[in-house]
């Protein structure tokens, strides 16, 4: 893969990776740094990605996830709180109702366990396939559907508390 193509793909995946890292680390700024470090690692050794082993997205997400887990171990991060999620309020044109709905989703996600948050972000925010999710989370492909379904049902129930 050409480095320029890789850079473009990484830029497109940046937000998804940041959302995933935020769910793991519980802090938007720390997550941005973690993604930046992961990008620097990839660009420093672009040959470490082998296109024959699958597409770039799951490989990069796995790298970001592993990096975040390393950071958590090293920094002993605080558990995730709703306030730690990105304060990405809507622009002035967005309605207060939309802002409340976004806040409810963020709070409900933050109330879930980390493994449930991860799988929801990978599927519903990043649109990865079940096979790709299995590769990122190091799961057997057959377990992704059941785990994702439990996470979604949990989120659905949790969301009712915030709306």
């Amino acid at each position: 893969m050409k480095t320029q193509d890789m850079r473009e793909q990484l830029a497109q995946m940046g937000n998804g990776a940041h959302a995933l890292a935020t769910q793991i680390l519980g802090n938007s700024e720390e997550a941005a740094d973690a993604v930046q470090e992961a990008i620097a690692k990839v660009l420093g050794r672009p040959g470490s990605y082998d296109p024959k082993k699958g597409s770039l997205a799951p490989w990069f997400m796995r790298l970001v996830r592993n990096h975040c887990i390393d950071l958590l171990r090293r920094r002993r991060a605080e558990p995730l709180e709703a306030d730690a999620l990105p304060a990405t309020g809507p622009g002035p044109e967005a309605s207060a109702e939309a802002a409340q709905r976004d806040e409810a989703i963020r709070s409900a996600l933050a109330a879930l366990s980390p493994d449930r948050r991860e799988i929801i972000v990978l599927r519903d925010y990043m649109d990865l396939s079940y096979a790709e999710i299995a590769s990122v989370l190091d799961l057997a492909p057959g377990t992704v559907m059941s785990r994702l379904h439990r996470a979604r049902m949990d989120l659905k129930e949790t969301l009712t508390r915030y709306e």
Partner: peptide, 8 residues
């Protein structure tokens, strides 16, 4: 979720 601002 797909439209939520999870990353700013």
């Amino acid at each position: 979720i797909s439209g939520a601002p999870l990353s700013e």
